[in-house]
Simulated assay, not measured.
Amino acid sequence: MHRPRLVALDVDGTVLDPETQTVSTGVREAVRRVVDAGGHVIVATGRSMLGTLPILDELGLHSGAALCSNGAVRVDAATRETVAVETFDPAPVHERLSALLPGSNFAAEQVGTGSLVTGWFPEALLHGPQRPADVDELVGRRVPRLIAHWAGHTPDEATEVLAGVHLPTCTYTIDHYAAWVTVVPEGVTKGAALEKLRTELGVAVEDTFAAGDGDNDIQMLEWAGHSVAMGQAPDPVRAAAAEVTDTVAEDGLVMALDRWLRLSRP
């Protein structure tokens, strides 16, 4: 077994229980054991920078990097400042999604300050200040992330409507908890961002670990030397992983991390 030198962790549904909106003591302690063993722990999430920083605090991560907005935004975990931001033109994407998902609320991320929104979003889902904007203002500048929330519809409905749809110059994923479409620049995924980081750190592929539960985690799970899907993950996510652990409510991440640490010891 190889040592867990780079450990990439999704947040919602993996580190944090969406039902209770908490990070368990077990998860915090398991992450600390990885750090103490010399591993780089990287939070890789669809959340914005503002939604990610409190998670870094909860986990006690004060060095290295965090990958936010599905990899479009990289943050220095020590300084809490952005290191790199990738953006796209949201205007054609908004036009297309507005037609396909009528009645959706949209949010355009403003890195480090909040979001421009066409309608109010639940605070537990869209972190940071929300500023109402008309469509012209919403799409008037390049953004790292655009969200469409098709309230009153299911993720399966959104998936059916968007099947085979290509959004110009973008990559999109659909949440499995709500009809929530996250759009980022084309080619940007958690897996692609982690590969850049892995190369910079000089970590071997065999020494990488990733855990997640959502559609936006699939490329990350396929990238990792060892990958774990959470027990509540849908079938496509489970199929992308080397193993499936217990659910987030059952501290499945703790089991997976401790097992890998135990087996990797000489």
Rank of each mutant, 00 (worst) to 15 (best):
E29S: 07
I55K: 04
E160Y: 00
R47Y: 11
D156G: 02
W120N: 11
A242I: 02
W120F: 13
T14G: 01
Q232V: 07
G71K: 04
V73Y: 06
T182P: 00
A242L: 09
G119S: 13
A37S: 07
D36F: 00
E195L: 06
G212V: 01
G252Y: 07
T171P: 02
L167M: 09
V93L: 05
L6Q: 14
W180Q: 12
L59N: 05
L263S: 13
R198Y: 06
R28K: 15
E250K: 14
Y177F: 14
A151V: 13
R259T: 11
L97I: 04
F121G: 08
L221E: 00
L61S: 06
T245I: 02
L53G: 07
R28Q: 13
V11P: 01
G128A: 10
F121Q: 05
E109P: 04
E222L: 12
Q219Y: 05
A148M: 00
L59K: 08
V75G: 08
D246S: 14
A30S: 13
A224N: 01
N70A: 02
A229N: 09
V237I: 10
E160S: 10
T20P: 01
L97P: 06
S63Q: 15
P90F: 08
D12G: 03
G112W: 06
P168G: 09
P155A: 10
H62M: 05
T159P: 04
A210C: 03
G46F: 10
P129R: 14
G39H: 00
P92I: 02
V184D: 01
D156Y: 01
L162V: 14
A30D: 12
A99E: 15
G38M: 12
T169N: 15
A148D: 05
T22Q: 15
A224M: 03
E95A: 15
D57G: 05
V248I: 07
F88N: 03
W120D: 14
V73C: 06
H149L: 15
L6R: 11
A133K: 11
G51Q: 07
I42N: 05
G64W: 01
L16M: 15
P129N: 08
D246G: 11
